[in-house]
């Protein structure tokens, strides 16, 4: 009988292979394309809508909200974070485990073998990179679009102050980072669901449907005791980066709440991964 030493495939190779797989998938690319287009269309749209209003010597609400290089990325992020970014995140997470299981490819990875905990880590990495990449790309395109449309002196906050370019960029970075952490929370929950089923569509339906239900619940005043437990509760506070001085309180609460969701999501995913039959 020979004694065999455990051998593992290099983790970097696994991560690279995972990313290559994700970014080769047509629907990932379609969604990224839409996300890239959205800020440009949004920026141009505000200008077009605004033109007749400005002709009358007035300013439209849209222009006040999104007509500058500071607000455009934040408003774009705040609108994409309620649907498109969670959609992309959930899509990636649903393909990561449920999708691979339904194609029979999860077996292949487990047989190679990639240990279940390692596999979960690789999948979590893939989901995290996709959501972070999508958010950064969207914010960057929106920031540049805003600068082109309204110029570098247009970084006006809700409070009426005008920020220097570096400050404005810093605010956009904070907003982007914050959105990324929120998306990681969604990704963690989606991966947990993804580990529990072989039907990727079920993951999509339950997570996107769940977010929709959260939205409904948070509008029911009787359930206000429940509201602080909902991940969506602090999503409005992303616009706090547009206030000057910047109130950190709600952003911090939202950040910590997302961290709790991440811990819960990955714990459930881990428990499911080590017990599931593939």
């Amino acid at each position: 009988m020979t004694t065999l030493a455990p051998v593992r495939a290099p983790i970097l190779r696994l991560l690279r292979s995972e990313l290559r797989w994700i970014y080769r998938r047509p629907r990932t690319l379609i969604l990224l394309g839409l996300l890239a287009l959205y800020p440009i269309l949004f920026g141009i749209g505000t200008q077009v809508v605004d033109a007749p209003v400005r002709a009358n010597g007035d300013q439209s609400v849209v222009a006040a909200v999104a007509g500058n290089a500071m607000m455009l990325p934040v408003i774009v992020l705040s609108t994409t974070m309620v649907f498109f970014l969670p959609l992309g995140t959930t899509m990636t997470a649903s393909d990561a485990l449920a999708g691979e299981a339904s194609h029979g490819t999860l077996r292949g990875l487990l047989l190679a073998p990639v240990s279940r905990i390692r596999l979960l880590a690789v999948k979590a990495f893939g989901v995290a990179v996709v959501s972070a990449g999508a958010a950064v790309m969207t914010a960057l395109i929106a920031f540049v679009t805003g600068l082109i449309i309204a110029g570098p002196d247009s970084l006006v906050t809700f409070s009426g102050t005008t920020l220097p370019l570096a400050d404005g960029l810093w605010r956009v970075v904070v907003a982007t980072g914050w959105v990324i952490v929120q998306m990681w929370a969604i990704g963690a929950i989606a991966l947990a669901v993804s580990a529990a089923t072989e039907h990727p569509l079920l993951v999509m339906a339950s997570v996107i449907g769940g977010l929709f239900v959260f939205g409904l619940l948070s509008s029911i005043p009787v359930l206000d005791w429940l509201h602080p437990f909902l991940i969506t509760e602090s999503w409005d506070s992303i616009v706090d980066v547009l206030r000057d001085p910047m109130p950190w309180e709600n952003l911090t609460t939202g950040f910590l709440r997302a961290l709790c969701y991440i811990v819960i999501g990955y714990s459930l995913a881990l428990a499911r991964m080590v017990t599931k039959d593939s």
Binding site: L14, R16, R20, H103, G104, R107, V114
Partner: peptide, 20 residues
Amino acid sequence: GFHPFLSGRENLLRCAAAEP
């Protein structure tokens, strides 16, 4: 079990990456 949107070679490259 393979991914339909990848070619045969790409599918096998992905499997190979996991082979210790």
